[in-house]
């Protein structure tokens, strides 16, 4: 995982609540044994028309959305299935952070393990972002701050360990493997 210090980008906005992982990537695309190349299936049922051409009305397809690295979604983003294909697809498409007022637990956990930054903001900030698509924002991990246009900024909650892992590019499996002695002791005591 590449270390992340900050992300600056214009936002692309999906003004919908409860965006579930079946929308982020439909189940029929989970018959893969790889984690690569899922970006083209991101939001497939919203993004493409029946003939496979891009749906011009869908927010991610608009010209101004191209190159945006920050996605803003309504409350309870990522609800539903545990599929890690959801953050894989977002990252493969070029989304590096998602802003919402609430994330589903498993999605958030999966996002953090892949370097996709979940930014939790208060409802007023979310409503402002939803109403103002395309503004430039900066997510600064060192200060856990989301900087908005006009010098305004809000801090967002993130566990110190998760933030450390994102900023150092630390792989959590490596951390767990270092606990081998503790795990062995636990297994012996339980046996």
């Amino acid at each position: 995982m590449e270390p992340i210090q900050s992300i600056t980008s214009r936002t692309v906005v999906l003004p919908r609540t409860d965006i579930d992982t079946d929308q982020i990537i439909p189940a029929r695309f989970l018959r893969t044994t790889s984690r690569e190349g899922l970006g083209k299936q991101l939001f497939a049922d919203w993004r493409y028309l029946a003939d496979g051409s891009p749906n011009p009305d869908f927010e991610l397809n608009r010209p101004e959305a191209q190159g945006c690295k920050v996605l803003v979604g309504g409350r309870n983003f990522g609800c539903g299935s545990s599929r890690e294909h959801a953050p894989w697809a977002l990252l493969d498409h070029g989304i590096l952070a998602v802003i919402s007022s609430e994330f589903a637990d498993i999605f958030r956990s999966n996002a953090l393990k892949n370097g996709l930054v979940p930014v939790i903001v208060d409802d007023a900030t979310l409503q402002w972002l939803l109403a103002n698509p395309g503004v430039e924002v900066t997510i600064d991990l060192a200060t856990s701050t989301l900087r908005l246009p006009g010098g305004k900024s809000v801090t967002f909650p993130i566990e110190p360990f998760a933030r450390f892992c994102l900023m150092q590019g630390v792989d959590q499996l490596g951390y767990l493997l270092l606990k081998d002695a503790e795990i062995t002791a636990y297994e012996k005591q339980r046996a």
Partner: peptide, 15 residues
């Protein structure tokens, strides 16, 4: 429920 990265964590460390 867990994601695939965590499936790997449990396979490798049971934790």
């Amino acid at each position: 429920g867990i994601g695939t990265t965590e499936v790997g964590h449990v396979l490798a460390t049971q934790c």
